[in-house]
Nucleic acid binder design. Structure first.
Lengths: 125, 125
DNA sequence: CAGTATCCAAGTGGATACTG
DNA sequence: CAGTATCCACTTGGATACTG
């Protein structure tokens, strides 16, 4: 620890390692092209059905959406509710309280994305 | 707009469309497994060389790191500085002011990731 | 050191058809 | 409607060797 020739790598692992590993954990769970978008739509609409969700998000295939939803459900962001009293069976996906803990992440990302888009329009094109 | 049978999809596209598309834009630029991690290390160390960066991040191959850095440079998050007066040539990567606009994104993500990790330890295992 | 080139295995994802 | 199964093209990424 007091090694005078401590490498920069070691210094970084000590100094920014926590941020690094926390961000890594976050990306592992909510990273990818679709997860946050699904969570946003579910939070906004409250309750959505499969095909409706697919159309709202746009560009996602049924297979991929299905896999993403399973993933999100496993991690507690989404609850799958089956109304088996109806035929054909109706399935609703609803956002959980836990998904609301992502509020600040979503706000930060959407604000940055909006600003970035404006920067690009003004500076580059 | 005043259509009484306006679909939920349309409602969502009006209500949360901006957040949705902004988050999409953000993910498009800084999404993926490595980009934010690279940016964090560069911000923390200020200036890093290629192999050093590879070792600090850990788990990333030279080819992938090289591609990510090109991408980040194109988008203005990283500056590549060549010291051609030395042999063998020394290359430094430094973070830009623009990468600092990601501060709130990184903070939100790292805080959420840290909390999430704690939740998992306590609740699931 | 700072990458690039090549080979190759594994994963991702679209399209389509199909099921209860 | 709410998915699943299959086929298949494309992409991603590791390992290794190589260059200036």
């Amino acid at each position: 620890m007091e090694n005078p020739v401590e490498t920069e790598e070691a210094i970084c692992k000590g100094r920014c390692g926590e941020s690094l590993s926390s961000v890594e954990d976050a990306i592992y769970v909510i990273g990818g092209k679709w997860k946050l978008k699904i969570i946003i739509v579910l939070q906004e609409l409250g309750s959505v059905r499969f095909n409706e969700l697919q159309r709202t998000i746009g560009g996602i295939s049924a297979r991929v959406l299905s896999n993403e939803l399973k993933d999100l459900e496993l991690n507690g962001f989404v609850k799958r509710v089956v109304h088996s009293e109806q035929t054909p069976v109706v399935v609703e996906y609803i956002s959980t309280d836990y998904s609301r803990t992502l509020k600040s992440v979503i706000m930060a990302l959407s604000e940055w994305g909006r600003t970035h888009k404006n920067n690009i329009r003004e500076d580059v094109f």
